[in-house]
Design a protein around this nucleic acid. Structure first.
Lengths: 194, 194
DNA sequence: TTAGGCATGTAAAGTGTTACATGATTTG
DNA sequence: CAAATCATGTAACACTTTACATGCCTAA
């Protein structure tokens, strides 16, 4: 399942332009399947070439034509097949964890910042998901499941960092260049919560 | 932080061959930063060209020379800089969740299989992490944090699927072509646990 | 008047995945 | 006897990311 297939799937709900699709990617998909214009526009062009979608151009004043894509019967069946495909993957690549792995080589301030940033991102993600899923009262079951999944995992990640972040700090280097400055880290979420 | 940088980081602990590094990637990194030979070998070649590592070739009988790479001072400082870099990302791309998003377009058997497969993968991941981290009693703090993080999140994901998987099944299509067969799904983890 | 939203795309660069290619030794 | 482990790498392919390129309208 690549961006192209996902676009096709979204078009199976309703016709949309590339711009519209980008907004959908920004809302729920943002945290588990991000995509930018650079992926979406070429994907739509490919889908049109394959005959899976049809494009209606709507002229506008002062803006480029709005190109609204609609799925075709061929597209519907192609998407069904894609859904039925055996093994959808769940790929994670975390530079955050890779960095933490080398915690002993970092000084305490660096580590603090790293953990705090990640915590902030996780809280933003949770807020974002809540906002998106509360905005739409009757979200379909699939969307609700996905939103709940995302929020739950983000909460678990945040809780883990809060509970276990301290164990990294103990071992971390005290960087002499920084030790004399008042500890900026003292005001962080981490310190106040752990 | 790409595969190249991570290889450099691993070499900062001890010298190793590409084959050795692959094994390290298979152990703890497997679930949050996977890499294959196709990434590792070119990475080592690039690092050597950049002067960040040095290679000692050890002749062997019946096997290609074993090339053991060791980090250089230049490599050490390059890696330190990479660690200090502000914003390590945490990238997720889940075809699993993308598929679930379209749950209403799938029939119940398909969904069951999908959820069960994912549950099985999560349990394997947890078992794998436990095995790896119990194998080594005095794992450094960074590694312990990462292992715990992975196991915790996998457990949270599994729990979420067990608790909320049923809400997808209710809405799912009953596929008439399959309805008459004895329900294979009846023996799954999901059914017995939810 | 400035920032943000609307609206399209292209091109190059960067990365990673998969398949290919080879072959001896050890373990069950 | 078969499968796994040891051991290296290349080449093609796929895919995404980022930067570039353009330009009007609306709301604060």
């Amino acid at each position: 399942m690549d961006v192209k297939t996902l676009c096709l799937g979204l078009l199976s709900f309703r016709p949309a332009s590339g711009y519209d699709l980008k907004k959908e990617f920004e809302s729920l998909f943002k945290h588990f399947f991000p995509a930018g214009y650079g992926s979406i526009y070429p994907a739509l062009a490919d889908l049109a070439t394959a005959g899976y979608v049809e494009c209606e151009e709507i002229a506008q004043q002062g803006k480029p034509d709005r190109k609204v894509y609609a799925i075709t019967p061929a597209g519907q069946s192609a998407f069904s097949q894609a859904l039925a495909q055996a093994n959808p993957r769940h790929k994670l690549r975390s530079e955050f964890l890779a960095t933490i792995y080398f915690a002993e080589l970092m000084d305490a301030d660096q580590l603090h910042e790293l953990l705090d940033n990640r915590l902030a991102e996780l809280r933003d993600a949770i807020a974002h998901i809540d906002q998106v899923s509360n905005g739409d009262r009757d979200l379909p079951a699939g969307a609700r499941f996905v939103a709940g999944f995302g929020a739950t995992l983000a909460a678990a990640a945040a809780a883990y960092i809060e509970e276990h972040g301290a164990m990294l700090l103990k071992d971390a280097r005290q960087d002499s260049r920084r030790a004399k400055r008042p500890r900026r880290a003292a005001q962080t979420n981490l310190e106040t919560r752990v």
